[in-house]
Design a protein around this nucleic acid. Structure first.
Lengths: 255, 255
DNA sequence: TCATCTCATTGATAGGGATCAACGCCGCCG
DNA sequence: CGGCGGCGTTGATCCCTATCAATGAGATGA
């Protein structure tokens, strides 16, 4: 296709897989160009540490593919997974000194990175960039408090069901067609699930197999499930509100 | 005292008790004047609802005196306290539709309020206002994730000790003098403490009296404690990191 | 002043889930 | 190909803490 008159040169960002859904797409063209100039990709393998806990934050960025996990640990080694980051999520903390949590690759990942100080300087010139960050930070805060509700007063089966619904919302809904069963890919290990849900791998395993026995899900393998009864899954989560985030066609089979 | 030549007229904000420590003091004078013009005080009595869960957010603001609690609930009535707001903390969510949690008066409170839409328009004209909000939102996010760590993988005694340390940091340190014991005022009920810590009132009570038996604290009455052994309290919390927030003189007796 | 109500405390009991242990499965590598 | 190590599963046991119940203490109001 011919470039339009006065069209800008294409950047590597124009071919980016997450361009449409990420922060980059919600800012003006000038800023997109600046961001493009600043950005560079990095890749990490499953298990690698992107940013250590209590480490100086030298860069921030956006997840292009794969999954990141954020985790905190106690001095004695106990760990808590405090969040997962999927495609097009922003990672790393701006305007801060040391990272309050580690960021690790929960799968092989590709990240689009910005040197932190440069990115911060950009927010000074472009308030809309800071505004977009603000919006996503507020969403993360809501999500964190939602998780506090889960950790503070829900039972383990409820937590597992809630977690699966969260996965549906964040990753699963795109490739679903009415009539078929919704399939869920769990991108993390049992150990990580347990850490995220404040329980143990053994208990997770028991609960999942119990759900399978009840016909709520089908276990294809340890990472792939199929939802057989969405209504039951939502009921089990005790979180009608979580179904709000599902696409409407999926929600329809849940209620 | 004579006003300086060209000095601006004093506003009610200049006499505000939290002026020095709040967001207002960290922005330019022009913005301070705008904020002053927009602000009005409201008072609520213990137990009153400031903003309901799932309610449209019509105003935001700053806590002048007293304590607010933020809480979320499940459909079946279970509740989780997801945060406490003290003097000079910002409350309410900007750039959002419905409130994700209720905000209630945990004591009699005085709030400095801004009509939400007007406040948001102000952030468009003054990026530094949004920046200050951004900084406090990031801090809240860190705090929320810290609490996830507590709820997800700490025992009840650890949680109670951590909670008391948090209170020391947020409220207790100002009126402490070396030599005296640090006194802690607990501004919320056992039920609220329990909800904040993901446990029950009965368990809280047992743990506190056990701490008293061990000589870590002295119970003046159900709301007032005295720290007899800060080192033990920190150890009990399993959170050396929480002592970082204490003033250095207090930290010194802890380590 | 006494009745009443709420909140905190204390005791007894039961249950959910952590812990410990063993086994199966699978990918990796010598 | 066979040993090995990590992960997931399953079983047995124990303990922490939720729950139920009763009492005490302080506040409120008639």
């Amino acid at each position: 296709m011919e470039p339009l008159p006065f069209a800008r040169a294409l950047t590597h960002c124009d071919r980016c897989a997450v361009r449409k859904s990420s922060l980059c797409n919600r800012v003006c063209v000038d800023l997109q160009e600046e961001l493009s100039r600043l950005s560079h990709h990095r890749t990490y393998c499953l298990g690698e540490t992107v940013l250590g806990e209590m480490e100086a934050i030298s860069f921030v960025g956006i997840v292009v593919s794969g999954v990141l996990r954020m985790q905190k640990s106690l001095e004695d080694g106990r760990q808590q997974l405090v969040g997962l980051l999927f495609q097009s999520d922003f990672f790393g903390r701006v305007f801060g000194g040391l990272s309050a949590h580690a960021i690790e690759a929960a799968s092989d990942v590709t990240l689009c990175c910005y040197e932190r100080r440069a990115f911060e300087r950009l927010t000074e010139r472009f308030p809309e960039l800071e505004h977009q960050l603000m919006l996503s930070t507020l969403d993360e805060l809501d999500a964190a408090r939602n998780w506090m509700l889960l950790l503070g007063c829900q039972t383990t089966p409820e937590r597992v069901a809630s977690f699966l619904l969260m996965l549906c919302r964040r990753t699963g809904t795109n490739q679903w067609t009415p009539g078929a069963n919704l399939s869920i890919y769990v991108p993390i290990s049992r150990r990580d699930m347990a850490s995220y849900l404040g329980t143990t791998g053994e208990t997770i395993s028991r609960v999942i197999h119990e759900m399978s026995r009840k016909g709520i899900i089908k276990i294809r393998n340890s990472q792939h499930f199929e939802v057989l009864n969405m209504r039951q899954l939502v009921k089990m989560s005790a979180r009608e509100d979580l179904s709000t985030g599902l696409s409407s066609s999926i929600r329809s089979i849940a209620l």
